[in-house]
Nucleic acid binder design. Structure first.
Length: 594
RNA sequence: GGUCGUGUAGUUCAGUUUGGUUAGAAUGCCGGCCUGUCACGCCGGAGGUCGCGGGUUCGAGUCCCGUCGCGACCGCCA
């Protein structure tokens, strides 16, 4: 028997028990006359004690242990004379009688403790060592807990977990596919699913009216801190439901998860915010509602609003399609340097604003701005009033074309939120973003693309617009957003094969193309498809949000870096000529000799 | 495809702005001492292809060119 207990469970009440522990040596503290060894497993740390007087041989053996040696120790639980209040097992120690070395260890390249001294790069290379650290173990345990609670909750709601294939047919829309060659079908390829979208809709046709799956999905696109080439979705679909049914049920799931894993309660229903409002007030379709600071329009063609009048000789404003401002409360005291930093921030190519106009509503009631040359005090006063500014506040104004300016204001709003410390990691403000546009126009290819995916149902009242003004059609689509993070999204689907055919037509598919790619789905819809809809959540993101992480990498046991490489395995890698031959594949390197 | 940051001891970093003696610190590691530590302490020691290649120079960690790795972001991600 290797152990009778774990390293995290023994307490004062176990005193006198003869026990055996097994684990890794975290640290030895050698005092000459006596030696302490911290023994670690994933449950905790227990101190072993060795005394030169009682057993010199054993004590010398303990001294020789190195970090991360795997050992087994048998002894008696005893109360410590010096207790350690920082350790759950700190009231006791093990008077060790037998010490068995199960396996020595090479010196690890970084310290394996709560806070390692190693950087990201080396910890990724030795991921199996990093995973020994408590923070990683907590993250993976949280992930496990959440997966269990998701299955538990959805099971009580009658969902069946059904697996769908991983090798499927490539679809042209959306992200790039990862592709798998077929040896038995030379020249032909499977694709890995970007999501089980069509399969879950087919399951609805097949009568499995509540489906769920925690499933890997694959997208061959450039990566970010919150994007991996393979990631996990909580994929769900329901038949005979309307949008409200879906939102209500999965709001229940979200509340269940918050309650069970964080003990966090919501007493109010989640806010439901139309896409247009999110864009106009927050410059984002995933607003962070942990703080206010809404965007206030000062000039907007759409709303006929024109607080800022022309005739000023200030072309930046005169020529702007849109002018908007943020009210930064109590920031009138910002120094020149701070304002310059903000200007620099909005001028970064990623943000793309040309410049930043500020208006200080000073404590003494006077107003100062960077455009005093062009506007008199009365004009500035009007802006301040519209923005609801009080003495001591600062207005930050951007101008330009509507969409990019709103987006830039949204980024500036988040930057101010960070600077003013308004982003509390322990507070969660969810919302449902609803009423998304069905289609997005792409200038480059001169065609519409589905904003969600091509199976999303238009709002029934907007269907006539499909012929006259497709860009104006709204969809029965929705996103769950928490703290500015898109946690999940879904839609009510088209279940009518004629309407689906029309969608493909609007998206520029010929009938043949649609038939080739989606024929099986359209066929299925002819045999009695129920009205249905669903949602999919980014499981990795949800875990990282709950764990308070900025990256999803540490919610995944073996993640890839931002080039899609596994630096531990060193994958992807070349394969043997023999393998290629079998697959009828010839590699045409862009850079010969690579 | 683009922007920005970064690469120096096992590890985390300083040194690079302004080229100049033997490249430092902390931590880890090794040896010695130490009977109540738990960030143990004290004494001693080892440890460097300054990412790689080229160039400028009497002289390059430092300047220039190229290249590679890592990270963040924009584009992209239905």
């Amino acid at each position: 028997m290797y152990r009778t207990h774990t390293c995290g469970e023994l307490r004062l009440s176990d005193s006198g028990k003869k026990i055996t522990l097994a684990g890794w040596v975290q640290k030895t503290r050698d005092f000459g006359g006596m030696t302490f060894v911290d023994l670690r497993d994933r449950y905790g740390i227990t101190q072993l004690v060795f005394n030169m007087e009682t057993n010199p041989d054993l004590c010398r053996q303990a001294r020789s242990l190195g970090r991360e040696y795997v050992v087994k120790a048998t002894g008696t639980v005893a109360e410590r004379s010096n207790k350690n209040p920082n350790l759950p097992t700190g009231d006791i120690e093990i008077l060790t009688e037998i010490l068995e070395l199960l396996n020595p260890a090479e010196l690890p390249p970084f310290t394996i403790e709560e806070h390692s001294d190693g950087g990201d790069e080396i910890r990724m290379k030795y991921r199996y060592l990093d995973l020994r650290r408590p923070p990683l173990q907590r993250n993976l345990a949280l992930r496990h807990r959440m997966a269990q609670e998701i299955r538990k909750y959805l099971d009580t709601k009658g969902f069946l977990e059904i697996e769908t294939p991983v090798m499927i047919k490539s679809t042209p829309e959306g992200a790039r596919d990862f592709v798998v060659p077929s040896r038995m079908n030379p020249g032909q390829f499977y694709a890995l699913p970007q999501s089980p979208q069509m399969f879950k809709q087919l399951l609805m046709v097949s009568g499995y009216d509540r489906y769920m799956q925690i499933v890997k999905c694959f997208r061959d696109e450039d990566l970010r801190a919150d994007r991996q080439p393979e990631f996990t979705q909580i994929d769900c679909e329901m038949a005979f439901v309307e949008q409200d049914d879906v939102l209500n049920l999965f709001e229940g799931l979200a509340k269940h998860l918050f309650h069970e894993t964080l003990g966090y309660e919501f007493n109010e229903p989640f806010i439901r915010m139309p896409f247009d409002e999110a864009m106009n007030s927050y410059g984002s379709d995933k607003p962070d509602l942990r703080f206010g600071m809404k965007i206030i329009p000062l000039k907007s063609g759409k709303s006929q609003q024109e607080i800022i009048r022309p005739t000023t000789g200030f072309p930046v404003f005169d020529e702007a399609e849109y002018i908007g401002t943020l009210l930064a409360e109590k920031c009138a005291g910002y120094t020149r340097k701070q304002v310059d930093e903000l200007t620099e921030f909005v001028r970064k190519p990623q943000i793309g604003a040309k410049g930043l106009v500020y208006v200080r509503y000073q404590e003494d009631g006077t107003i100062k701005s960077s455009v005093d040359k062009f506007f008199d005090a009365t004009a500035l006063q009007t802006w301040a009033e519209v923005a609801g500014a009080k003495p001591g506040d600062l207005l930050l104004i951007l101008a330009g074309n509507s969409a990019p300016t709103l987006k830039a204001l949204g980024e500036l709003r988040l930057e101010m939120g960070r600077r003013l410390n308004l982003l509390d990691k322990n507070r969660f403000v969810p919302l449902w973003a609803i009423d998304f546009p069905l289609l997005e126009w792409d200038d480059e290819t001169q065609r519409f693309y589905a904003m969600h995916h091509p199976f999303t149902a238009p709002k029934p009242s907007d269907i006539p617009l499909l012929d006259t003004n497709p860009g104006q059609v709204h969809a029965n689509a929705y996103d769950l957003v928490i703290n500015g993070v898109e946690i999940g999204g879904g839609s009510i689907r088209i279940h009518d094969s004629k309407l689906q055919a029309k969608m493909f037509e609007i998206l520029g598919f010929t009938q043949e193309q649609a038939e080739y790619r989606f024929g099986f789905l359209m066929n299925a819809f002819r045999y009695g498809a129920p009205p249905h809809g669903g949602i999919a959540f980014g499981f990795d993101r949800w875990v990282s949000l709950f764990a308070g992480l900025n990256s999803i990498r540490d919610t995944i046991a073996f993640p890839k870096n931002n080039m899609g490489r596994d630096v531990m395995q060193d994958s992807p890698a070349e394969i043997d000529e023999e393998q290629l031959k079998e697959l009828n594949i010839r590699v045409d390197h862009k850079n010969p000799g690579a």
